[in-house]
Design a protein around this nucleic acid. Structure first.
Lengths: 329, 329
DNA sequence: TTGAAAGCGCTAACAT
DNA sequence: ATGTTAGCGCTTTCAA
């Protein structure tokens, strides 16, 4: 390469990297570019990385048993944002095991991964292997007690609050809340939002029905049948997520109850190819995993907002066909 | 490191890599291991890779607009299998653009990626950038006309056939097949299987109702309403996938029709957290993306079965609550 | 304005 | 049985 252009390798490096503080004559530059084009020369990034001690690579660590569409959305966002800065994602999946996480992070570090995105699918507290903190790390949908690394989290309380407010705005006063797994961070936060919105409307949260589920579709179904058994239905049912809402829809239809004419149903997540495509289309709260992945990747590159330990991402309410003003008292 | 053990770096390399044909005394080996432990020394994999011209890295190229749970399942399988051989996945997403695919593959090659898994979500013919073939490449859920690279594909025809056979075995004779996107490879193959099974049972495929959908839940809903409008329902409805089946369930329940008492419903995919959790639980055909991802990664390491260009992976029928013997003639 | 040379950490021939 | 040495392809001081 260098000899074709009749210059030294150093010169090639200077023009290709546009190294600052270097003065290369237009003529030489031209000659180099010509040779590059002719040979289809591409610098060996592995060698570059080796020399510089970096790899232009971000370790995306999925630290959860769940590795499905939510992880995919986060990865997609992180990938796009990383790419803009010339970085690629080295992906690993710990299956939620701390031991495996340690192994994988050590491996990633051996490869000189520049930074880490440490992600969970179900929002929760995690312990990040000490080693990870050698490199810039941002937590995605998880957090540590000591906030040693910045975390990107969904603002679930606000999500729950705004969903409830939307239903209140429609005129609903009698609710059932079919929650996800009671112990989970997201469940508790959303429920807090629910209660808060009710109080704002001068309603007593304890007058409303709250049933605990587990985020699976069948729990939405079972809980709705339970509701049916208990007697007069509320006018609005809020579900822990969209899958539960689908279970609710099924149970309601089976019982001959119409949505949204007889009762309104609201999901959570805006699950891809589900919430918007079910009939009636689900009103829901969008959990923007893709945006969060993107923010995580950007945070790594621009630690500008270094102050805030936890970034809360807004989850907007989406009103679709499954909700309407109540027709019964 | 080397000096602590009082040996040369080469010796360290020999004992750590257990280089074949090398004779290191037990004593020296011991001394080296001691120093390694003491220093917590870990070889720089980037430097290793640079020297060897490899990276212990597989480029997983998602070449599809769809990057969701099916891609995640494939990645999970590929990740696990790769890890067993010490390889990690460098993940890129082309969004289905050939131009982007070329860029990304060039980037991956610059980083000395050892091999490629080139994957699509919807099974289809692809054109693989010429550059990719510099490294071992296996196609996952896609294929090229010239079969220049081995492909891992689901055996959709058999899946369609066995699903239909299962329903025939239950006693069904009057079917509706609500297909996915008619132009897609998988749709055609499944339909072929459907027709084949009918002929086996001495039934004329043309006597059955086949309606074209698009794999979205709402098309299952709409098509089922269309079926309802047309008059007497068949005893079994086969859907293009599980999401369409959910749409079908919704439309049926809404119309006061019970599943599986009045009509049996069958999906396809065994979609995670949907098929098994909906009520009634969907009978379906499992599309084993995780297994396929695993096979792809293994194929890369052991090109043993180098002969077969296309490996067809079996999609087993799963019978759950949404199917039963017919109760009406 | 450019080139020479050292060196990143490792491995593989080649010596000893 | 072990050490020496060269070199992988690049970047970066330093010198010319």
């Amino acid at each position: 390469m260098a000899q074709l252009a009749g210059v030294s390798p150093a010169t090639v490096s200077f023009v290709l990297n546009q190294t600052a503080g270097q003065t290369i004559s237009a003529e030489t530059r031209e000659r180099v570019m010509q040779a590059v084009a002719e040979l289809g020369y591409r610098p060996n990034r592995a060698a570059q990385g080796f020399h510089r001690g970096t790899s232009a690579t971000i370790g995306f660590v999925n630290h959860d048993v769940d590795f499905g569409e939510f992880a995919a959305a986060a990865i997609k966002g992180a990938h796009e944002a990383s790419l803009r800065h010339g970085n690629l994602l080295l992906l690993v999946n710990t299956g939620g095991s701390n031991r495996q996480a340690e192994h994988l992070i050590a491996d990633l570090l051996d490869r000189r991964t520049d930074a880490f995105i440490f992600a969970a699918v179900g929002t929760r507290a995690v312990t990040v292997p000490e080693a990870a903190l050698q490199a810039p790390t941002v937590l995605l949908n998880c957090y540590t007690a000591d906030d040693r690394a910045p975390a990107i989290l969904p603002d679930e309380e606000r999500g729950g609050r705004e969903a409830t407010r939307a239903m209140l705005g429609l005129g609903h006063r009698r609710f059932a809340y079919l929650t996800g797994k009671p112990a989970q961070w997201s469940t508790k936060a959303r429920l807090r939002g629910f209660r808060g919105a009710l109080r704002e409307a001068a309603l007593d949260p304890d007058d409303q029905v709250v049933l605990s589920g587990n985020y699976h579709a069948d729990s939405g179904y079972d809980l709705t049948r339970e509701l049916l058994r208990r007697g007069p239905l509320p006018t609005a049912i809020l579900c822990g997520n969209d899958r539960m809402a689908v279970g609710t829809l099924l149970a309601l239809f089976e019982a001959g109850i119409r949505v949204p004419e007889d009762v309104s149903v609201m999901g959570y997540d805006d699950q891809f190819q589900l919430a918007a495509e079910v009939r009636p289309a689900l009103s829901t709260v969008r959990l923007p995993y893709d945006l969060m992945g993107q923010l995580a990747a950007e945070r790594l590159v621009e630690p500008a907002m270094a102050g805030s330990a936890r970034t809360l991402v807004h989850c907007p309410v989406l009103l679709r066909g499954s909700t309407a003003p109540p027709t019964r008292g």
